[in-house]
């Protein structure tokens, strides 16, 4: 009891250490894994994130009118494990430091991170394909020259043809 009393009395004179959070500012540790953010412009739809997602939160599917791919991340089953960010080749998906996850029940199924990848047509044959993002080029090639820049607008088949030529 005496040792506890000593600590308690010391605490009394040190004053409270409570975070003023709901009424004031709080701190956010660096590298906190919060809600994921998706950048459709950098995504190449490799579906790696969908494959590794521990909670099964990520879904990438073709929209009904086949004009592109839709990326959906439902925060309500995301475990903030960060696997998607780790495996994403172009870092199109990133975890932010935003931890404000509380929401009402009516928003339960609307609480998603959405993105839309519009198909572009191949410059040669015109088949719709997922656009190749500059982030991917940067990762694949040390230097992007004009030849590669032209290949970027071709579908895989046309690219093979050109390579064989």
């Amino acid at each position: 009891m005496a040792s506890f009393l000593k600590i308690a009395l010391r605490n009394l004179f040190k004053g409270p250490t409570t975070d003023p959070y709901p009424f004031g500012e709080t701190f956010v540790p660096k590298g906190l894994r919060g809600k994921a953010k998706y950048n459709a412009a950098a995504c190449i739809a490799c579906r790696m994130c969908e494959y590794v997602c521990a909670g099964g939160a990520i879904q990438i599917r073709e929209v009904a009118d086949k004009s592109g791919l839709e990326f959906i991340l439902w925060h309500n089953t995301c475990t903030f494990c960060g696997l998607c960010e780790y495996y994403c080749p172009t870092k199109a998906i990133r975890l932010t430091e935003d931890y404000h996850t509380a929401h009402r029940q009516e928003d339960k199924y609307r609480y998603v991170e959405k993105g839309f990848i519009k198909y572009v047509n191949c410059a040669e044959c015109g088949t719709p394909m997922v656009p190749i993002s500059p982030e991917l080029l940067q990762r694949a090639y040390r230097q992007v020259n004009r030849e590669i820049e032209r290949l970027r607008h071709l579908c895989p088949k046309c690219r093979q043809k050109r390579a064989l030529r």
Binding site: A8, L9, N11, L12, K14, G15, P16, T17, T18
Partner: peptide, 9 residues
């Protein structure tokens, strides 16, 4: 006072 003893508000 108990809260203050525990460094709480």
């Amino acid at each position: 006072i108990v809260a203050r003893f525990q460094r709480r508000v």
